[in-house]
Design a protein around this nucleic acid. Sequence first.
DNA 1: AATACTTTCTAACTGTCTGTATGTATCCCC
DNA 2: GGGGATACATACAGACAGTTAGAAAGTATT
Lengths: 396, 396
Amino acid sequence: MDKRTVTAGLMRSINRTIILDLIRTSSPISRSQIACRLGISMPTVMRIVDLLTQEDLVKPLDCVEATGGRPRHMMAFNGGAYAAIGVDLGGSKMVGAIADLDGKLLHETYVPWKDGGSEDALAELCQLIENLMAAPRPADQKIKGIGVGAPGVTFSREGIVSWAPSLGWCNLPLKAILSERFDVPVMVDNDVNLSALGEYGFGSGRGCESLVCIAVGTGIGAGIILGGSPYRGYRHSAGEIGYLLPGVKYLGRRYDGFGALESLASGTGIADRARQLLEQGGCLPPTGVLDAQQVFAAARRDECWARQVVDETIDYLSLAVATVSALLDPEIIVLGGGVARSADLLVEPILARLDGVVPSPPRLVASSLGRRAAVMGAIMLVMYGTTEHVVVNQLI
Amino acid sequence: MDKRTVTAGLMRSINRTIILDLIRTSSPISRSQIACRLGISMPTVMRIVDLLTQEDLVKPLDCVEATGGRPRHMMAFNGGAYAAIGVDLGGSKMVGAIADLDGKLLHETYVPWKDGGSEDALAELCQLIENLMAAPRPADQKIKGIGVGAPGVTFSREGIVSWAPSLGWCNLPLKAILSERFDVPVMVDNDVNLSALGEYGFGSGRGCESLVCIAVGTGIGAGIILGGSPYRGYRHSAGEIGYLLPGVKYLGRRYDGFGALESLASGTGIADRARQLLEQGGCLPPTGVLDAQQVFAAARRDECWARQVVDETIDYLSLAVATVSALLDPEIIVLGGGVARSADLLVEPILARLDGVVPSPPRLVASSLGRRAAVMGAIMLVMYGTTEHVVVNQLI
DNA sequence: AATACTTTCTAACTGTCTGTATGTATCCCC
DNA sequence: GGGGATACATACAGACAGTTAGAAAGTATT
């Protein structure tokens, strides 16, 4: 595909993007500060900030700052003027929220999944969106759009969910369907990419240049943000670290739908390993069914079998973190997904195991958004996607 | 760091970059075709192509193409007008070349490394460059610059080799030294990044959007090209796949200077494993010393011990390829480095092992530039680095 | 308190670049 | 040789960022 040529209009879009991002991350800030910080002339800043103010994306504050000369009039990002709807279609649940562009939650819903076919999932999604739209919020607040994260392969540019087995969706043109029905812009992406975007915009990775979010839940996946932009790969399957191989002996098999690493270290894998260990030892699992949460709880109580399962989990996750660090060297690695609720048991031991193992040890932190990460990422996706968000890059 | 704002001048640079790249990859091409292909107006194409012609980067051809109307005057990239010098400082050798911007080699030298200290390496490098500059070439051909690939950690923007143990260099401002001495632009980068850039520009990965070059030599490293640009990571240590861990049991150790994977599957590692196996079996290595080349040669003769070593090597490399594919999903993976001379023994078996293992199987091919990859990458680096090479990217 | 100084903000103008519109050149086909 | 088609050329208009100079609104100084 050919690169994009530039006209005066796109030049304005690029500068607008940069100024808006600066205001968003540095409010309150005055126009002269923007000019100085970006090395851009005052009139240009004036013109663009005026436009942003007209669009309600930026608002002047009352506060001024003394400088020895004429005082600065401070401006701020006006995230409250718009709301966005974000939905995270998980493997076993659906989390939806409506929030303003500052990331302030206005309303949130959580719907556990009834196991149904494709039609049902779509109908429930529409119902959820309708409920969120009806939630009470400031009278003059407009809706910017809807962002949806789907568990599977997505073509985010086209807005198509190409393959989401847990929903029974195949080549579903979700963007077309939803934007037709709700008459607002709709953005679609992979749920793990959205988690990464959420952490990048509102969570542990705020202000970072590059970030990888390792989401450990039903499966394991990684969302990759490089230079502020989600990296999706040539065949839309970057970040599929559930398919990493924790050893040569995992080579000779087929992994259809579930990868080698995730069959060991995902929530499901943790529970499986615990069950096996207990059965081996002659004990029955505590309550018949057993999930990762219970394993971690038992490990906190220092039960021997659970400690062993958790230790092995730490080993496997260390492998994943080492891989990401050695290959991509991101500024920060965020541990997310359901298992991240037990991140306090994981982060330090993983870092300890990586000492001396990888060339430059990563910053590894727990998700600060928890199960809301993908939803917040969807808000971010809408914010970026509804205005031309474009930057220049120096090759080399 | 703040993103870059745009003025009319940078707008011109961007469009210039895109037009030049199109001419380079699609010569011969007419100006009207460029306008049509890029969706840009004719006058703009005219103006920029005129400038490029004045700079001698583009030349009009005599040939015309009938169209039913006024025939197209074809233009072509004029790579022959400039030469660039590329040097690949390997762990055990120094390869240098002078080539024109089409990638046509004019002269090449190969200097095996005498083991000396920092001063020696630099002096020999300077000598090599001087020899290359003195090589006979077309009279009117100007020299665009010098590109150097160093085996270690480099800060390519600053032109500093921060840590190259095999040369004894630490924080050496190579760019400053060489550009002072030779009075031409100098670019510095990691040798593996340059191999990737070479394959991307002139080798197996020509025209690809993203590429990972896995270089298996004394060590193992990967060069990563995403969106036409080398990706180097936040701490300049992306692509260090020599440090991948082929199993949980490799966790509890320290790897100083040599990673887990490369101690098994690099040229050195292959020789080590072969030696161990032979000693175990009571045989002595054929000639006392033993290197990877000999192991592959023996495997071709179907000697049992060598087949086993090669099979294990294939397993380890499959792990590396699977990792790259699962995490980055590049358009193409190129197998390079010294071991790639035996790529015919490796590529097919690796692909076979990956069938059903990774979500979307990669295109895996052998390097087509061989030991010249990094040198050609250096040429590429000079070509990109000496003119403002800049593009726009849509975030999201 | 009046003045000088400093910094922010505003307005008019200039320069650069791309696009549009129109004109010209050069072929093929009849 | 004329009509049609396509490529190339030129003149002008529009959009945008930068420059310059000046007004506004404070603080420091005398």
